[in-house]
Amino acid sequence: MPRKPRLAVFKFASCDGCQLSLLDAEDELLAICDRVEIAHFAEASSDLQPGPYDVALVEGSITTHEDAERIKRVRADSKFLMTIGACATSGGIQSLRNWGQIDEWVQSVYPSPEFIRTLATSTAIADHVLVDFALHGCPINHHQLVDILVALAEGRNPRVPSHSVCLDCKHRGTVCHVVARGIPCLGPVTQSGCGAICPAYDRGCYGCFGPSQPANTASLVSQFRSHGHSTEKLVPLLRSFNAAAPEFQRASEQLVILGPNSEG
């Protein structure tokens, strides 16, 4: 029997929710441990073994000089590097700083701003090193994570669909909020993964799983504007957990250029 792959989990700027979802996979955890050797996972064990690793799960975005260097070492130590969650994959909610003045933020948030050394931006891991696979979601879906880990151990392709949330709504019989209520819902441009939870509970999709393949945000936003939704409402919708994902970022910046909506 081949050696079990060595797994490491690394945290950058993040809330820890995504790595916690691995610990939350209580029903599967023992079976996972049969398949992979967890060599470095600070959230789970103080026994942190050095690399090299077969698989690195990277949570969080790059927001400091130190982390910009550390991610390079993680990459060098890891055969297969996978980002987990919106922060690592697209910069996270903290990428809102990309549209502000970092000095102003620091001044207003910290009582002693002189101790803070940070970058002006929050950026995705893929902006710094090569990423082999990106698992979307805020937080990730732990069933998808488990499937990927097993797929890696078995040498098969993981099953992570990249289609829109709409397909899942239709499987559930959820009525489209955009069409039946005129609610701006990001489902048509957001990747599947959550099981279309929000639309099933009377809310539009917030885009937690980031852009789908493809994500025609230009066409959808143009339709939202023709429904009379204001720029003030649409920009924050696009600028949340995946604000800096290219398709969402482009759409929100285009809206800012267009200014207030006169079509309403």
């Binding site: 599967e28 289609h163 829109s164 709409c166 239709k170 489209c176 025609n216």
Partner: peptide, 29 residues
């Protein structure tokens, strides 16, 4: 193609569209 979202809604609501995918789903053990 520039207006279409490729979101699958038309095919899902269509009463004749019949495409499906078949997947083998295995338990962890």
């Amino acid at each position: 193609g520039e207006r279409c979202l490729s979101c699958t809604n038309c095919t899902m609501v269509c009463p004749t569209c019949f495409c499906s995918s078949v997947t083998e789903v295995r338990d962890l053990n």
